[in-house]
Write a protein that binds this DNA or RNA. Sequence first.
DNA 1: CGTTCCATTGAGACCCGTCAATTTCAGTGG
DNA 2: CCACTGAAATTGACGGGTCTCAATGGAACG
Lengths: 246, 246
Amino acid sequence: MKTVSPLSEQKDIALEDVHPCATCGARPLGVCADLKGHELQNMACNSENVNVSAGQALVHEGDPNPFVFNVVEGAVKLYRILPDGRRQITGFLFQGDFLGLGGRSVSTVTAEALTPLQACRFKRGDFDQLLNAMPALEHRLVSLAGDELMAAQEQIVLLGRKTAKERLASFLIRLGERQQQLGGAVNHVLLPMTRLDIADYLGLTIETVSRVMTQLKTSGMIRLLPGNDVEITDPDRLLALAEGEG
Amino acid sequence: MKTVSPLSEQKDIALEDVHPCATCGARPLGVCADLKGHELQNMACNSENVNVSAGQALVHEGDPNPFVFNVVEGAVKLYRILPDGRRQITGFLFQGDFLGLGGRSVSTVTAEALTPLQACRFKRGDFDQLLNAMPALEHRLVSLAGDELMAAQEQIVLLGRKTAKERLASFLIRLGERQQQLGGAVNHVLLPMTRLDIADYLGLTIETVSRVMTQLKTSGMIRLLPGNDVEITDPDRLLALAEGEG
DNA sequence: CGTTCCATTGAGACCCGTCAATTTCAGTGG
DNA sequence: CCACTGAAATTGACGGGTCTCAATGGAACG
């Protein structure tokens, strides 16, 4: 059923022939989304597959930062620690997310796997050369950076002006949407992170997260499922709460 | 006293011949920093000078967003409003800062001038074409995006985990550093924004900002100068406070 | 079956928000 | 030069949402 356009470059490499990118679930989501076959080949040659287990760190805050990553499978938390031990999780990464836009010479965050993780790793220098060679890659990177900035903005609003209840509602809605994009079930949210992680992401304490979680449950907006998952039973009301309408 | 390298391109346009970029104070700081003469010429042809007075908005949250801007002179606040009126200022822009990375079709923030403002405006489509034509421009944009992401990260830590005192200390330190970069006096911080703006930026109320300001004054770290300015009288102690050491 | 880690629940304290009064200051006009 | 005015900033008293400290419950694991 395939038809080949007469305008397509005959010498190009088919996407299906690039290993291991051909079977990579993250490819249509990551920086490499818009690349043609031969470009993808070029990427693959300069990358390295990395597998780490849950709890392992990809990079440490303050350390030299010679790599950039693309998450292929699994989840990552990014965090910074204040001198007295207070921790703030600045973001979570999932399939297709890129790590390495900020902090070129020295990492400003620690990146730690939440689950067994598979990632695609590039030397910074190599990646910069790839950027030079492929405008489509740099375009895509600008686009991803824009998305990240919008997400950061959203988080700033959450931390600056929302109540604990609104924060948790926003968190569950956003995580649910993200997982839906990645092919997950509607209104079923997987939480690969602990309550402490959620608290440190939302600027709260573990106790407050726990209390608010039961409040949302009691008021019928969510159900707590076995295995640390959550079902959103009243999406409309949870969304209204998340956006601060009341 | 000038010497012309024999390797330089003879046909290139000298930077001094590009108007109005030649005299633009923001050029070495903005997206156009790394551009050669003919490239700058190309930028100038596709841009438009915009002047607005203090209090005027460049873009409104939720409106279509057909332009990107580069701040030439003056200061801007970016903010979002929740349905019930709560406001969060997500950032301030100064000379050389770029506006338009996130929210391509619809603006996610309102951008409002704090002072009389001069900016360089591009149609989004034109700017995208410029990006295509000039790799150096897109490189610079990626770099600026990385800086913005790091700043956003910093703000997330501030809002998530710092006390009111630490927030204000961080704010004054950061603003002072920024103004020093722009040629301002050391330890002398200009505040073009009101207490309400500061409060809405730091996730506090106007009263708390005022109270903490006098606390910092009383403890000898700052002095309040006429004209809403601040002098940092004990930079070391203020910095230690800002970073959360105690 | 004990250990360990994580989540939940409760009681009290504290930081910051809310509400309200007062002061300061810049701008204006007499 | 001074009084008037309105907005912004400061200061005070009080209350509430979240944190702290502490105990209990519950699931995974050896």
